[in-house]
Design a protein around this nucleic acid. Structure first.
Lengths: 187, 187
DNA sequence: GTATAATAACTAATATCATTAGTTTTGTAA
DNA sequence: TTACAAAACTAATGATATTAGTTATTATAC
């Protein structure tokens, strides 16, 4: 039994690698143990269940996504910021498929860290929309709309829902621009 | 061994009931057999695998959704048709959560029936957009955009992604209207 | 440096899952 | 009525997560 020197961080990052390479559903105790060169029960010294591992993956994904999005709008405002936000959201989902999947998976037990991070991203969107003169209610509708668009694009692309004729990113940006046009027309 | 009189249709409809009640992931051979009052291996007289059952559920879901959407736009055109389409899409996803989930699940083996139905729905959207004067490319971008919006809303709502402050449907319709405004502003 | 305690691995076992092989029963058609 | 196909069954296999209990390693206290 030579010790392999596992800890939570090493396990989570192996799990994320597995998720990105093979899909989130391939993140099993058995596969993870194999990847780490250890017997399945050994993982229970670091985590109490597979659900806990999944939750930690989701946290990591949400935080990394939030970080990416905050950086993407730094120094930008209005339509430019919204476009950058949307583009980076899609890019993140493409670059980290398994990790992104974990962030949108309905969780068995609701997690506060994930919920808080999600709220932060909503607040960020509200802030970006303040450049347009909207009522509070309009703004809240639109935040939902923007989240649904970026998530919808990311999710449909992941599921193979688009033919490859032309770039998905172009379609996303076209849609967002049109929405901004609609906002401007209101003013 | 009194015969229980199973057939593919009865099994699929029991599976759909299970999916809507308990979630798609609860559709297992074991749970299905229990619900139907039969031993698990008996199901293999009607289906060759769980994957086949899942595929048939997805087909049923796609066809029912397509049917719903076609009805929703009958006798309507332009913005009115698009709003009705979107509203009924969301309503369908809410009323049939497990069935809707099956339609968006990336399939292990690509299925022609599902692909064809999906194409029909895209064609329907293209048709609805013909009321606006768009180039072919613009129209294709926008079809992707509309699909992403309705799917995004349905998916985020399912995952508990929205607080209950006010109606999700209102947010969806607000977003779609804004998009239509953007289209009109182009003309 | 050595004893001790905490920790990280292990083995063995249980329960659930899908699936396969082989068997029995049932219903129907000749 | 007999024969055959279909639909159920039992038994078994191999994968899964998880638990209990055990051993070995590492770090800490003296």
């Amino acid at each position: 039994m030579p010790r392999v020197g596992l800890d939570q961080s090493k396990i989570i990052h192996a799990a994320i690698e597995l998720a990105n390479d093979q899909g989130l559903e391939q993140v099993t105790i058995a596969a993870l143990a194999k990847k780490l060169g250890v017997r399945p029960p050994s993982l229970y010294n670091h985590f109490s269940s597979l659900i806990e591992i999944r939750t930690k993956i989701a946290r990591e994904g949400m935080q990394k996504l939030e970080d990416t999005l905050i950086r993407s709008v730094a120094g930008k405002s209005g339509e430019e910021a919204i476009l950058s936000f949307s583009k980076q959201y899609l890019t993140f989902a493409n670059a980290n498929p398994g990790l992104y999947e974990a962030t949108i998976q309905p969780m068995n037990v609701p997690d506060n860290v994930v919920a808080d991070t999600s709220k932060n991203m909503i607040d960020l969107l509200v802030q970006l929309l303040s450049a347009f003169s909207l009522t509070e209610q309009e703004s809240l509708h639109l935040v939902r709309g923007l989240r649904s668009i970026v998530h919808g694009f990311a999710s449909l692309q992941r599921a193979g829902g688009f033919q490859m004729n032309f770039k998905v990113e172009d379609s996303l940006l076209y849609t967002i621009k049109l929405l901004c046009d609609g906002m401007k027309a209101k003013q």
